[in-house]
Measured scan of single mutants.
Amino acid sequence: MAAAAAAGAGPEMVRGQVFDVGPRYTNLSYIGEGAYGMVCSAYDNVNKVRVAIKKISPFEHQTYCQRTLREIKILLRFRHENIIGINDIIRAPTIEQMKDVYIVQDLMETDLYKLLKTQHLSNDHICYFLYQILRGLKYIHSANVLHRDLKPSNLLLNTTCDLKICDFGLARVADPDHDHTGFLTEYVATRWYRAPEIMLNSKGYTKSIDIWSVGCILAEMLSNRPIFPGKHYLDQLNHILGILGSPSQEDLNCIINLKARNYLLSLPHKNKVPWNRLFPNADSKALDLLDKMLTFNPHKRIEVEQALAHPYLEQYYDPSDEPIAEAPFKFDMELDDLPKEKLKELIFEETARFQPGYRS
């Protein structure tokens, strides 16, 4: 834990890192770190609560700039109880001085990944967590956004079992017609939660990839272990087919990539493993919904509104309290091709509203 900075004593240090967030945020305490930044909790002297502050230093890398800009653009436009918001952003007053960006968010005690390492969940908890994931996802999908990296560590939890989806750095506007060349190379989302079509096709992607990830998360809540822990690309596919069985001819016809289709045709026939054999203690309604989410063919996979209306979630289902976005989200430009200098300018502009004396 960093010592509390005395008023006016300059930035606090946390594990050798400068955290320049005073005077409003003090009493910093280390939480963890990701690929390009550290997260601390801090005391907000204005709202009198502890908050989470993520320090991001992305400006050396085009990919990190892209992810940072995506996350900020999306989260500043989203407003939903099951999606983490941005409360404040701290950065230098000029673009030349801006080396880091500090993002202030609600402090959540833990995440689903940490929880599943230590606790076996009751059916009631599984049901409530799944409902909140789908409630947040309904809003995301209504904005025409794909999260693309749903996994237990991106689901934040607090002691009252509130759940918030975080990390929109890989999110995209849904565009089933656009052929994202190089899709697989830039697709760094965790393999275990990846839909089979991501490994088999490169053309376009749809909201059904997020539903697949939610199915993987439900299976993990039922058993405290990942359902498809593939060691590499082909191993991942083999794990999936080992449980779902061989795809039907109709399902194979959806695979545009001939090499991928021929690979699947070359494999020995596998039978589907019954879900109640894998999860003998699970609620039968939970397994019915799991089956509809972990469907090989993305066109037959359940959609988020149908999933919310499934009998497993009937005690929570309330369409009048499951809000959607006001308007579909649009990125003005494809960020993939922009140089990091341009992305830095866009991050600077996007964060201006939090600067003292800002006038829109």
Rank of each mutant, 00 (worst) to 15 (best):
D210W: 06
G37L: 03
Q355G: 08
E314A: 12
K259R: 12
I256A: 12
D283K: 02
S223E: 10
L294R: 00
I140C: 02
P229H: 14
R194C: 11
P58Y: 15
A309R: 02
D283E: 15
V51W: 04
F331N: 11
V14H: 04
L278M: 12
K300I: 08
P328T: 15
G242L: 09
H61D: 07
L241K: 07
L290Y: 03
I126A: 02
D20N: 14
Q97Y: 04
Y233P: 02
H239Y: 10
L170E: 04
K340S: 04
I31E: 02
P93H: 02
D251G: 10
N297F: 13
Y25D: 08
Y205F: 14
A171Q: 01
K342F: 04
P356T: 12
I133E: 02
K231A: 07
V18N: 08
T68W: 12
L116W: 03
D332P: 05
E109R: 04
L155W: 07
P176Y: 05
D235I: 02
A352Y: 03
K151S: 02
A5H: 06
V51G: 14
T63V: 11
A174G: 09
Q355H: 13
D177S: 07
V101Q: 06
R15C: 06
K231G: 05
S213T: 06
N82K: 12
P328V: 03
P11H: 15
F168D: 02
Y193L: 11
L69M: 14
Y113N: 15
D179R: 10
D179T: 11
A35C: 07
L157G: 05
E186S: 04
K344C: 00
K73W: 10
C161L: 08
Y193Q: 09
I217K: 11
R194M: 07
R79F: 02
N257I: 15
K138Q: 12
D336E: 13
I90C: 13
P93R: 00
Y64Q: 14
K55V: 09
L289C: 10
L313A: 07
L313P: 05
H120N: 14
G169E: 06
W212T: 04
P311A: 08
K344S: 09
L335K: 10
D124P: 08
T351H: 02
P23T: 13
T351L: 07
N154G: 03
N82L: 09
M199P: 06
D106S: 00
K259S: 00
S202K: 09
I95S: 01
D251P: 04
L115A: 03
N45F: 10
K55Q: 11
L157C: 07
T110A: 13
G242Q: 08
L200Q: 14
T63H: 15
G10W: 14
D318G: 00
Y316E: 02
L121G: 07
D283L: 05
D162N: 13
R148F: 12
K99E: 05
Q249W: 06
H147G: 01
Q97F: 14
N271R: 07
V49G: 10
Y43L: 13
G182Y: 11
E71C: 06
T63R: 15
I198T: 01
I256L: 08
N158H: 12
Y64M: 15
K48P: 06
D88L: 06
V51N: 10
H125G: 08
V173R: 09
I72W: 02
D175M: 10
Y233T: 12
E305Q: 00
S284Y: 10
M98A: 01
D100S: 11
A5T: 13
T94C: 06
C40D: 02
C127D: 07
L237Y: 10
R77M: 04
G242N: 03
N144D: 00
Q315A: 05
I209A: 03
S360D: 06
G230E: 01
A174F: 03
H269E: 11
R301W: 03
N87M: 09
K272T: 06
V18M: 02
V104H: 02
F331E: 01
D111L: 05
C216R: 10
H178T: 08
F78Q: 09
D175Q: 06
M13I: 15
A35K: 15
N201T: 10
N158W: 07
K138D: 06
K330I: 10
R191I: 06
L157R: 10
G136C: 12
E322D: 13
M221Q: 02
K270I: 05
E250I: 01
D337M: 03
T206F: 07
P226T: 14
F183I: 15
F183T: 06
C216P: 02
Y312M: 08
G242I: 03
F129G: 06
A3R: 11
D337F: 09
S122Y: 10
P339G: 05
P196K: 10
G34H: 00
N47S: 12
A3L: 00
R172K: 10
K231T: 10
H239R: 00
H180D: 10
Y113I: 12
C216F: 13
E220N: 05
R353E: 09
Y358F: 14
V214R: 05
V21Y: 07
I347S: 14
F348H: 03
L290A: 07
I95L: 13
L237A: 11
M293C: 05
I56E: 15
I84H: 08
E350M: 03
R79N: 05
N281F: 11
I90Q: 03
L294Y: 04
V46A: 10
S208L: 10
H180M: 06
I211K: 13
A309G: 07
P196N: 10
V188E: 06
L264K: 08
I103G: 05
L289V: 01
N201D: 04
R67V: 12
E345F: 02
G16K: 05
M108G: 09
V51I: 15
I217P: 06
E81S: 05
Y36R: 15
R359S: 15
N123R: 02
Q249C: 08
K151G: 04
R225T: 01
N276I: 14
V304Y: 03
A3K: 07
Y102Q: 04
R91A: 01
K292W: 04
I103A: 10
G8M: 01
I243T: 02
D175W: 03
N271F: 07
L115H: 04
Q236T: 01
I140S: 11
K164G: 09
Y113W: 03
H232E: 02
E250V: 13
I90K: 04
G16H: 10
R15Y: 00
T159V: 12
R91D: 00
L134T: 08
P11V: 09
R50S: 15
Y317L: 07
F59T: 12
S246G: 02
Q132G: 04
G215K: 11
A2T: 13
F183D: 05
E303N: 04
L107W: 04
F331K: 01
G357L: 10
D336A: 12
Y25L: 06
D177P: 07
L290I: 09
C65I: 15
L157Y: 04
G85P: 05
D337L: 10
I95H: 08
T26A: 03
L287A: 03
L130C: 13
R79Y: 01
G10C: 10
E334F: 05
K55D: 05
E305C: 03
H120Y: 13
L338S: 09
D44G: 00
L75E: 01
A5P: 07
S208F: 05
P229W: 03
I103L: 12
R191Y: 11
H147W: 04
L112N: 01
S41E: 05
V101H: 03
R70L: 13
P328W: 02
S246H: 10
G10V: 15
